[in-house]
Design a protein around this nucleic acid. Structure first.
Ligand SMILES: [Zn+2]
Ligand SMILES: [Zn+2]
Ligand SMILES: [Zn+2]
Ligand SMILES: [Zn+2]
Lengths: 142, 142
DNA sequence: AATTTAAATGAAAACCATTTCTACTTAATC
DNA sequence: GATTAAGTAGAAATGGTTTTCATTTAAATT
């Protein structure tokens, strides 16, 4: 279930193409967030012909379908991460080695309450992300 | 204190220039987030010569100095907002009319605990933002 | 008030990550 | 296998943002 990618794609009404599967496989193998170009470079090892726009398109679609997460990086470039944890949660990202770790705490409930009570608007999405240095990177510096 | 901009700039070791003051004044007047180009257009009404890079540079510096907030927008463009609330808090942003409203709830404490306990890393920053439709925009649609 | 110095600025150009376009290919359905 | 809508490659365009560098300005120092 966790990585029956063909099924996952079908559920999103996306065709099961070798390139889509490869993008997911590449991301699954990584414990760090990757840029579209980095994923493209890895794809070039598997396919003779593979365009960068294909990688961008697919990453956007997969992100739209909540299969992969978009990372909010201070340098404002795009990064993606495939998390095997399928329940709602957020991320701690290492700004040095790019490692991604799960944060189970989510303020969604409390915030929903506050938005209902005071703002009286409709929530469409929320971002919660912690940026820092992971254990390994901290120890290297010390 | 709240808008003694010259003093604020001095504290950041930034020179008190008419253009910096104007950028702050423009932002202070707005209850919505603005793009650098939008701010530049407003600046052109006040100055004969005003370059877009100057606006970008100053916005970045002011954001770095925590005088203004950078907005995380789904379209990935830069937007800034000057919030008069000087205590730590986060924002609800309307994706339709761009209104920004304060959310006092912040999960920082809980997250800090979780990062200390499980991740054992160092937190450098955190993002918490709620995107949605404000009360006014909801009612317009209904 | 004049001098000095580092910071700020404008204009033009560069940058470059991302998107668009078009012709071609492929997956899925029957 | 034929059909059709979706996916793709490659090249080019896009456009928000940053860099460069010569000039100007703020503000500290005489
Ligand atoms: Zn790390
Ligand atoms: Zn995760
Ligand atoms: Zn609104
Ligand atoms: Zn605020």
């Amino acid at each position: 279930m966790l990585n029956d990618f063909p099924l996952t794609l079908k559920k999103l009404n996306l065709k099961v193409t070798p390139k889509r599967l490869a993008i997911l496989e590449i991301l699954l193998k990584e414990s760090v967030y990757l840029s579209p170009e980095e994923i493209w470079k890895k794809m070039k090892k598997r396919f003779n012909r593979i365009g960068l726009p294909t990688v961008y398109r697919n990453l956007e679609e997969l992100s739209e379908g909540n299969i992969i997460s978009k990372i909010n990086h201070p340098n404002r470039q795009l990064y993606y991460y495939l998390c095997q944890n399928r329940s709602h949660h957020h991320h701690f990202i290492c700004l040095s080695c790019r490692k991604v770790e799960d944060i189970s705490f989510c303020a969604a409930k409390e915030i929903e309450g506050e938005v209902k009570r005071n703002i009286r608007g409709k929530i469409l999405s929320h971002i919660l992300q912690v940026n820092g240095l992971c254990k390994n990177c901290l120890e290297k510096k010390g």
